[in-house]
């Protein structure tokens, strides 16, 4: 851990102007916003993050959950995960989101972690977190230790020869299935980004994880009104029964009419380098009769491009079973 300046601000434009002084908003940023701190402070202690300026955004008025006129929901960036998961509207209209958040971390962590922070949660790849190891995400060009190392928990979808790190968030998986929109305030004004465009595949630049630029501040997330007659479900599979990152998870939002799927939104967690929306699975489900054969075909499609590593081949079948079971639960 190195010394840093801690700045508490009550004004978003000050925070944004300070953030814009950093060369990057990605790995290696010299300015970081902190809200719950559950990822950032942890990584600072490990010397993985070494910001010179840490700007506390907890006093910005971004901690509200507000229903929108169109029936959707606006979620402030600093809303705590526990408040979001237990919110009556979320539980009624977006149960998949509540279930996903409650499947993650511990009660203590959820009390601190925020919506914006969770969108930016960093990978748990052990080599990323160990400064003695080579890691292209932490130090571009040094190589990937995980590909020939301990990779049991790492990604099988969206990987590259440079990085196979998993996006560890549960919330993001539900947000992907709900097609959330992320609202960002930057030095050139506000913009909104569909969650599918927000996270980047590692490719040859795994240090770049999102489209954020220096100074960009996530202000809130909006959800569209729940699809009529849709049901949703989040299933998380892991070694122990709680307090562990997913080996595979699935967020499903489906509408069934007359025994057939009329609309499906599918995202997988624990297997992708980003929250893994599967439009292939959605297409295969739509119009098809509810039941295991349909679900299995969808699961096969979702994992068709999987590229397992030496230790995580089991994730292909595990993710398929996870998706099939989640679909069964959502269509009971």
């Amino acid at each position: 851990m190195q010394s840093f300046a801690f700045i508490r601000t009550e004004d978003a434009s000050t925070a944004i102007a300070s953030g814009a002084k950093s060369k990057t908003a990605q790995q290696g940023a010299s300015v970081r916003f902190v809200a719950g701190g559950t990822t950032l402070i942890d990584l600072m202690k490990l010397n993985v993050e070494r910001p010179e300026h840490v700007i506390d955004i907890n006093r910005l008025p971004l901690d509200r959950i507000e229903p929108l006129a169109d029936g959707g929901l606006k979620i402030g960036a600093t809303v705590r995960n526990s408040d979001l998961a237990n919110h009556a509207i979320v539980q009624r209209d977006y149960p998949v989101l509540s279930q996903a958040i409650l499947a993650g971390a511990s009660a203590q962590l959820r009390n601190m972690a925020t919506t914006g922070g969770n969108l930016l949660q960093r990978t748990r790849c052990m080599y990323f977190r160990d400064t003695a190891s080579a890691c292209n995400k932490r130090e571009p060009g040094t190589g990937c230790s995980a590909i020939f190392g301990a990779n049991r928990t790492l990604a099988i979808l969206g990987t590259s020869e440079h990085c196979i790190a998993t996006n560890p968030s549960d919330m993001n998986v539900a947000m992907a299935a709900l097609e959330a929109t992320i609202h960002v305030q930057g030095i050139n004004g506000a913009r909104s980004i569909p969650i599918g465009d927000f996270h980047l595949l590692p490719g040859s630049t795994p240090d770049r994880e999102t489209v954020l630029e220096p100074g960009d501040l996530i202000t809130h997330v909006t959800l569209a009104p729940p699809a009529p007659r849709s049901r949703s479900f989040y299933l998380k599979l892991r070694d122990r029964a709680s307090y562990e990152f997913a080996l595979a998870s699935a967020a499903v939002v489906v509408t069934v009419e007359g025994g057939r799927v009329t609309r499906a939104r599918i995202a997988l967690g624990g297997v992708g380098t980003k929250p893994w929306r599967s439009t292939e699975a959605e297409a295969l489900l739509t119009g098809e009769p509810v039941g295991e054969p349909t679900f299995r075909r969808a699961a096969n499609a979702a994992l068709r491009d999987a590229r397992p590593q030496s230790q995580n081949g089991f994730k292909v079948e595990l993710a398929k079973r996870c998706l099939v079971h989640a679909l069964k639960e959502a269509t009971l």
Partner: peptide, 16 residues
């Protein structure tokens, strides 16, 4: 290196 040298990656039984 014992690479899973933390309580998130070295899994022990939780209450659940």
């Amino acid at each position: 290196a014992p690479i899973n040298s933390n309580l998130a990656d070295y899994i022990v039984a939780a209450n659940a």
